[in-house]
Design a protein around this nucleic acid. Structure first.
Length: 298
DNA sequence: ATCGAACCTCCAAT
DNA sequence: AATTGGAGGTTCG
């Protein structure tokens, strides 16, 4: 009887696990052990509880198999490689942006910061919840939704709730979601849950699809505008040329990039950046966001 | 077309 | 101790 599955992932590219897990793209990671250099993070990836720990050029992975759903080492390896985007060519990205002073400064501080590849449905709900909210509250809402109707998983470490599918959330309905504290977002999450569970929208089909196709599908959902659509595309649909413009990105673009006279609104800023950065847009966004949010006040 | 105001809830700052 | 302001946005008028 296997109790847990351990894996050592050697890194060939820079990776900064701590910055990556807490860079505002994923909301259900927690630090379960905090040591001087090597902290242990616990989260749920594709329904499975995982702990991660980085030591220099390795990431240590632990998975806790369930009786009904065992996991092989190679499956786990694939899972983590995909989620953490281990093989992204960051060095290449750093080189291509070598002449960009602001980016280089961010890269210097947050070297190894990665985009994550999350599950589309969970990602969509999280970013609908992000509207006019702060990160601790987004986290709280995601936890409450999971506790309310997420499947209970019993692995070798104990019990936990993984994130519910669209059908389960649709069953909660708008009022159920309001009771969890979603506020005006309840209507939107419910609507999304309805159309996804009724298969009027297949999020997985948008993975790697043409940008506009994914974009149009997503903004047809109530509560999903330009920013949220781009977040979902960037963090779960392999749309690396996405460029979500939030308050921090708006500031840094206005301060450092776009000429002062130009009075462009958010969509204009996004298109401007996408034209400039192309397929690097997503990574550029993440590095700009991290620096501007963490280092400068309003 | 464009521009504010309103939207739920919670928590931190008066 | 009660009140106000505001948070990674979107929709509606």
């Amino acid at each position: 009887m296997a109790t847990e599955l351990r894996l050592n992932l050697p890194l060939e590219q820079p990776y900064n696990l701590a910055e990556t897990l807490y860079s505002g793209q994923a909301f259900r990671w927690s630090t379960i052990q905090s040591l001087e250099e090597e902290s242990i993070y616990e989260g749920i990836i594709y329904g499975r509880r995982i702990t991660l720990c980085q030591e220099k050029k390795n990431i240590l992975v632990t998975a806790y198999p369930t009786r009904e759903n065992p996991l092989s080492e190679s499956e786990l390896r694939g899972l983590i490689n995909s989620y953490l985007r281990i093989n992204d060519d960051l060095e290449g990205f750093y080189k291509r942006t070598a002449s960009d002073e602001y980016l280089q400064s961010s890269i210097k501080t947050y070297r190894g910061l990665h985009l994550l590849k999350q599950e589309p449905w969970e990602c969509l709900v999280a970013f609908i919840c992000s509207a006019n909210n702060n990160i601790p509250r987004i986290r709280l809402l995601m936890d409450r939704i999971s506790a309310a109707c997420g499947p209970v998983i019993n692995d070798t470490k104990g019990l936990y709730n993984s994130f519910p599918d669209a059908k389960s959330i649709a069953l909660l309905g708008e009022s159920g979601l309001r009771d969890l504290g979603l506020g005006f977002r309840a209507k939107y999450v419910n609507h999304a849950a309805q159309i996804v569970s009724q298969q009027q929208l297949n999020l997985k089909k948008l993975i790697g699809s043409p940008y506009l196709e994914a974009y149009e599908s997503l903004i047809s959902i109530r509560g999903v505008g330009d920013k949220v659509a781009n977040c979902v595309m960037l963090f779960s649909l392999d749309q690396d040329n996405s460029f979500p413009v939030d308050v921090w990105i708006r500031r840094v673009l206005r301060e450092e990039y776009v000429p002062k006279e130009e009075t462009v609104r958010d969509v204009g800023l996004r298109e401007w950046a996408q034209k400039k950065f192309g397929m690097d847009s997503g990574y550029v966004n993440q590095y700009l966001f991290q620096k501007r949010r963490l280092e400068t006040n309003v």
